[in-house]
Amino acid sequence: MDEHTVRHVAKLARLELDEAEIRRMAGELAKITGYIEQLRAVNVEHVAPTVHPFFDLNAWREDVVKPSFSRAEAVSNAPEQEEGFFKVPPVIE
């Protein structure tokens, strides 16, 4: 886990880190990924991967419509709104 990787991951996560933080995170994340490397050493050749802690197969619903939020409710937490739309800073310059 080098500083370059930390910068990349921070950018993907939209985190602004200064140089000191990047150095600190590189050290901390290296410990975590080091632990994962340790787990990787275990032989799991005959164990099916577990992607889910329980086996609740086929937990689907039927195609039935239920009431939605009102328009006012939908945007009520938005920092900015305009005529029922969420408003965000310009995406395209």
Partner: peptide, 23 residues
């Protein structure tokens, strides 16, 4: 009308859980 068909799941509100539509 804009945002008239939304709920905690499709708005991505914290704690909302998706359930797959079998259809």
């Amino acid at each position: 009308p804009a945002n008239s068909l939304t709920c905690p799941v499709c708005l991505g509100l914290p704690g909302a859980l998706p359930v797959v539509n079998r259809q």
